[in-house]
Write a protein that binds this DNA or RNA. Structure first.
Lengths: 242, 242
DNA sequence: ATAAAAATAACGAACGTTCGTTATATTTTT
DNA sequence: AAAAATATAACGAACGTTCGTTATTTTTAT
């Protein structure tokens, strides 16, 4: 059974977004279940099915409202109404509005980690690694576009541990791209005079635009595969040797 | 006298950020003055020097607080305290918190328009035009980094006219890059099979990262010239013919 | 030049409302 | 009937905004 879950991760990294989307759904369910387990001490509702179901609803509703007006401007009454749960019921699933923000963060972060960590494993050449990584990033940010947007816009208000985790996550993603390029230079697959960390930053910026300006790409009917390929082409064209 | 102002605009587009910064300061003063004139009917304080001075202070303070916690989470008491003006005095300079947001938007938008509109005028080749445009954009977003960040993060809450203006502005900037590339294709300075609008989007995303992740580039001691040049190189390398 | 009058600017307590949260009551499930 | 989940009512704090008042500057009259 556990072997099957690992298989899902491997199946994720394919050229086709639709297949990716199907397999990520199972993973997302696993993650909410884990989210419930990890936060059992905060959640008053003990029936796990009920709890997981409502947690999902609350998280998605909160993300949806926040993306329209910002988390701080979302009132608990609004969340209550939109999620069809009373105020009292809401507070059975999290102890405070601040804590709900953390729960939402945990949810998305777990999904991203699970996706990106497997993206590089089976790739050998610099070209394949960059290709896979960019596609994995675009695909996961498409599947979780609302969370990605939410996270980008809201986590800047964090302080302390949560803030550090966000910075860390940003820099970690970059360091993965940086490593791909540095490795490519070493293996003479890339030009030798590259500023790899700056290219990594710029690459990340390009990938982020996919969920930050979702309306734009939707309006133009650009699909994830097309966007990912263009990003890959621009960067690979710039870095590759010969 | 008026000729001098125009000269300033031409002087802006140079390779050196420090010179750019000096000349933009004069322009910013002009803009706040114009801002006061345009909003005279909303502003109760009639002494123009006083009014302009305090408007500047209010705008910068509001931007600064908002960039830390979000505009909607900034209270008027906080703004009052930080700007050393009483609540009552604040409301002599704008009629409501919502309207202040619009005034702040007007302020930055005027500066950006003035800068970018002149960036392409004297450039002849595709290479020069792209070079100038990217540098102008990075330079103005460096000089007004707080406003750019503010605008990016807050305008998504806008509705109606203000929302349309934001979308329009985003698409207009892109269309300028798109035109440079399309023109380059026509003049055979660029490859013929390019998706110019998608490249334009990606280019904009790269430029935006400069102010969205200011902390990162500051930490790495990357100067505006370096970042602008890298962006230019990546894109020009991808599009140019031969 | 000086004093009186008027205009302007700044102040901050107070208003009605809405916020996040909690305590209590009701309904549903077992 | 007991327990669990949900719904409702109520709380104090904080919100944006208003407004009666005071302080300061400018204008007018002497």
């Amino acid at each position: 059974m556990k072997a099957e879950k690992s298989d899902n991760i491997d199946e994720l990294f394919i050229d086709n977004y639709n297949n990716f989307r199907k397999s990520i759904k199972i993973i997302l369910d696993d993650i909410v279940t884990k989210l419930y387990d990890d936060n059992k001490q905060l959640i008053k509702v003990k029936k796990s099915d009920q709890s997981i179901h409502n947690l999902k609803r609350i998280i998605n509703t909160a993300i949806s409202i926040s993306n329209k007006k910002g988390y701080s401007a979302m009132s608990m009454r609004e969340l209550s109404h939109a999620s069809s749960l009373s105020i009292g019921a809401l507070y059975s699933y999290f102890p405070s509005k601040d804590e709900l923000l953390h729960i939402i963060q945990q949810y998305g972060r777990a999904a991203v980690e699970k996706t990106l960590s497997g993206a590089l494993s089976n790739a050998l050449s610099t070209k394949d690694k960059l290709y896979n990584f960019i596609h994995a990033h675009i695909f996961i940010s498409e599947a979780l576009k609302d969370w990605f947007y939410f996270s980008y816009m809201e986590t800047r208000y964090f302080t302390g541990v949560e803030y550090n985790k966000t910075i860390e996550s940003e820099l970690f993603t970059e360091s993965l791209i940086d490593s791909i390029i540095k490795d490519g230079i070493k293996k003479s697959e890339c030009k030798s005079n590259l500023n790899s960390s700056l290219i990594a930053s710029v690459t990340k910026a390009m990938m982020q635009d996919w969920y930050l300006k979702r309306w734009k790409y939707k309006r133009r009917n650009i699909i994830p595969e097309e966007y990912a390929l263009e990003c890959f082409n621009i960067i690979y064209n710039y870095i590759h040797q010969g």
